[in-house]
Design a protein around this nucleic acid. Sequence first.
DNA 1: TAGATTGTTAATCGATTAACAATC
DNA 2: TAGATTGTTAATCGATTAACAATC
Lengths: 208, 208
Amino acid sequence: MDQNIPDIVIGRLPLYLRELSRMEAEQNRLTASSQELAERLGMSSAQIRKDLSHFGEFGKQGTGYHIHYLIERLTDILHLTREWPVALVGAGFLGHALASYRGFQRRGFAITCVFDNDPAKVGERVGDLVVQDAADMADALRGVRIAILAVPAGDAQATADALVAAGVRAILCYAPVALSVPDGVQVSYSDPVVQLQQMTYHLTLDEG
Amino acid sequence: MDQNIPDIVIGRLPLYLRELSRMEAEQNRLTASSQELAERLGMSSAQIRKDLSHFGEFGKQGTGYHIHYLIERLTDILHLTREWPVALVGAGFLGHALASYRGFQRRGFAITCVFDNDPAKVGERVGDLVVQDAADMADALRGVRIAILAVPAGDAQATADALVAAGVRAILCYAPVALSVPDGVQVSYSDPVVQLQQMTYHLTLDEG
DNA sequence: TAGATTGTTAATCGATTAACAATC
DNA sequence: TAGATTGTTAATCGATTAACAATC
């Protein structure tokens, strides 16, 4: 049981959890080997065993891992034993899509409030929630440590500053900007164009 | 000028491009040093210089990089000198959000067709496009090499298979599944829950 | 038992960084 | 010129993998 586990390892645990959950739900499987999990995820079995070994010994020689047990362990490790409330900022198309997505609740998160700074949107329904004024975030955010940022690029940094001031410690940022945040605040980004641009490097322009 | 450049390097180029574009648009700046770019992106200046050195010598000692020139070089390297047509599959909330997002066009991509397998959605407007039947993808996809997958998890693999069969070589997958694709087909994933689960590892459960 | 698979070690592989000569 | 900053080298750091004893 290590003290300091590389973030690249932590980043793979949710993938293991997701795939194991899928195996448990779709098949009548009780156990899985690192080899099988690796094939399904397109990685090496050694990497999976190494990653898990940071946290303990969860498998059995000759048998592999008990799926349900490993799911429980991973849920524990990732602090997913209770549901995390999440604030959503931005009630545009993307905000609507996120608020309507059922996958959050199923996997440990619940969007509990939605904000926008556009007076026209305040009061509007988004998913099961009503849009609140972004100016009221500080009060409404008591106890919420996680926020999803779905505002235009130009508003992103100021919004992040307000979220951090209100106590948020983890931000999932959909705006195409690099945020500046204090130590101790985590930011994870999602920019589809950045992902596409990485892939076009490997594609050729000609023929079309 | 290397032959084989690590993918982790390629993955950072779009971030350089994005930040430089922002500097050019928002400020009256002609040049930027690796130091300044690094600070804005939260990385080391040595890494930026090393990354760029894989492709040539773009800077000047004492001065740094000419922003506009470096943008052009990166645009070239990433094959963004022409606009790429992109197919969108899935016309749910997320599909609507993606189809309405203006950021694609501004940065080298254009969603040119939208598909769904739900007859109720076929014919519906999404952004500026009309939803086509997913059964017709093979024909409608002539010349399109990039697709965005915004379908439910259960449909993702079959849809990916159909896209690949139709000639798609790069898939941006929003479904929470690991796709299996042939060699030569690139897949990039976006699963917000995976990102949130990585961050909760670093958050403590206690205190609400 | 024989076969399968773990957890771990040591080796390999790859990425990042510090430092500096070159030079604008 | 003096100051700034590049491109590159070599050292460091970290991650992946192959292999295997242990053991179910």
